[in-house]
């Protein structure tokens, strides 16, 4: 991919992000932050490449450390988001008692 294609993806993604995030309900802004935390750890891709590559031992160890840090975020971020989202419940109505799973 050349620089311009990458830049195009980036710019379009910024616009997508803009419209998608404005549609997020304010009540879910905390889960929004924790889930964006989790997904920004996709940086683990770079860490994996570094850990796997032969050649430089220091690069490898830096990569492995980054893998560990990003993993804290990936697992922790998604898990805490799931935990929060499970708490948001609708008012109990006379209707059959659902436990919130749509």
């Amino acid at each position: 991919m050349d620089f311009i294609s990458i830049l195009s993806i980036f710019v379009l993604a910024c616009f997508v992000g803009y419209y998608v995030v404005w549609s997020v309900t304010p009540a879910l802004h905390t889960p929004l932050m924790s889930v964006t935390n989790a997904i920004s750890s996709v940086i683990v891709v770079g860490a994996l490449i570094a850990s796997a590559a032969a050649g430089s031992a220091s690069s490898k160890w830096l990569g492995l450390l980054a893998v560990a840090l990003a993993s804290v975020n990936i697992f922790g971020g998604f898990a805490v988001t799931a935990r929060m989202l499970a708490m948001y419940k609708r008012k109990e109505r006379p209707a059959p008692q659902g436990d919130g799973h749509a």
Partner: peptide
């Protein structure tokens, strides 16, 4: 890497909007 770029743009705009 497009996954990282898309994610970065999403998270970046999300934080900016907040």
């Amino acid at each position: 890497n497009s996954a990282m770029i898309i994610t970065g743009a999403l998270v970046g705009s999300s934080g900016a909007i907040l």
